[in-house]
Simulated assay, not measured.
Amino acid sequence: MEAAELAALLTPDGMALLDRTPGVSDGGEIVRVVSRLRSEGHDPQLVSAVLTQAKLRQKARGKFGDFAARMLFTEAGLEQATRLQVAAQHAGRFAAAGLTRVADLGCGIGGDAMAMAALDLDVTAVDRDEVTAAVATHNLAVWPNARVELGDAAAFDVSRVDGIWMDPARRTSGHSDTRRLADPDDWSPSLDTVFAAATSTPTGVKLGPGIDRDLIPDTAEAQWTSVDREVVELALWFGPLARPGIRRAATVIGAHGIAEMTGPADAEDAEVGPLGAYLYEPDGAVIRARLIGDLARALDGHMVSDGIAYVTSDRAVTTPFAQGFRVLDTMPLDVKRLSARLAADGIGTVEIKKRGVDVDPAQFRKRLRLRGTGRVTLVLTRLDGRHSAVLCERLS
């Protein structure tokens, strides 16, 4: 969305038109909405802006729920925005640490600032992009304790606040079709600038979950968060925002609510042993935090192979930190033998998981020539140094 489109949208007529335009997704629906709005005599630029926002609001429901219906977005801003349930966890850190004045530096469309303002924190949200800052201003307008400033996060006077939240821009500038920047020196602000600020001010930092772990300072608590089994971020916490004695945390959010596994450092791996009655696939946040060994010990289990993130146990355990499977059988990883076995068992639907083997699951599934009504999970991995297939069923 460009500045001219936003200006047309941020008028009483523009917002009224947006609020009565439903969310759109498929092509036929888009054509009908455009045709209707054009026939009503609306300016083509305004129609384009309204249609873009209607689509983004529909898409944003997964991150913002009912709040999305009153918010504005840019494509890049929505893609990079923190999910509201995760932002609430961030805000809770500042509130629990007694920090009442917080700067959200690199605020984007304002997702984290919204969560902070909702906890009655005094929030100053800063973004260097004019359109993005205007969108954030709209999204934060209902909270008198939040304000948006147009400016460079690196130049912000941190003496104005008690704590800072930073989300360094890790993509090229723009509102759509941005690309990822691999070098932390190219981020805005750079990672060195972020860590320098953290030495003097209580700081939280949002980063991508796959960041090089060698870049994580020893002074930080590193918290990986997953939502519905997808790892969405790494947050680093400094000063009073970091919890005493904790340097690694895996926070798992899902239908069960919120669960967390923590440790003072990377956990020592559990020993390797034979496949038991049950196989467990750790949540991605647990894997990223390198707490797999602690999970294995909590399950009275062990690893199936060195360097492979599967845990096995003879106990059936329901845990938010892993998906559990009952082991039905094991076979060599031979597609012809597997195909014959699945056909004999009447298996027509197969969920394929893999670790430690070079297999394309989609192509492998085609080669199985499945037929029948039964279902099974097929785990392709290494057991005793050999490529193997484990036939399983999910634990309820």
Rank of each mutant, 00 (worst) to 15 (best):
A69P: 04
N145V: 03
P274W: 00
A16Q: 14
L191S: 13
E230M: 12
L368C: 05
L234T: 01
L333F: 14
P189W: 15
V350Y: 10
K55F: 01
W165S: 14
L391M: 11
D384R: 14
A115N: 05
A322C: 08
V272E: 07
P12S: 05
H138G: 00
V311T: 08
I109L: 13
P282W: 00
R341P: 00
V33D: 01
G151W: 02
K353D: 01
G307F: 04
C107E: 02
G245T: 12
A169L: 13
P282E: 00
T137Q: 09
G257D: 03
G210M: 09
L119F: 01
G372L: 08
W187G: 03
L9Q: 09
A169C: 11
A220D: 09
V50S: 08
T178A: 06
D345Q: 15
V194F: 12
R382P: 00
R128G: 02
E281P: 02
V350E: 05
G204M: 07
M1Y: 10
F364R: 07
A155S: 13
I109D: 01
P12I: 06
G106M: 09
A76C: 04
G77K: 06
A76F: 09
D345M: 15
L181S: 10
A197T: 05
A141L: 06
I308H: 05
V148C: 02
L234F: 13
R32G: 03
E130D: 13
A250V: 04
L191R: 12
P184C: 11
C107M: 03
A389F: 12
R315S: 11
S339D: 05
G106R: 12
S339R: 15
P12G: 02
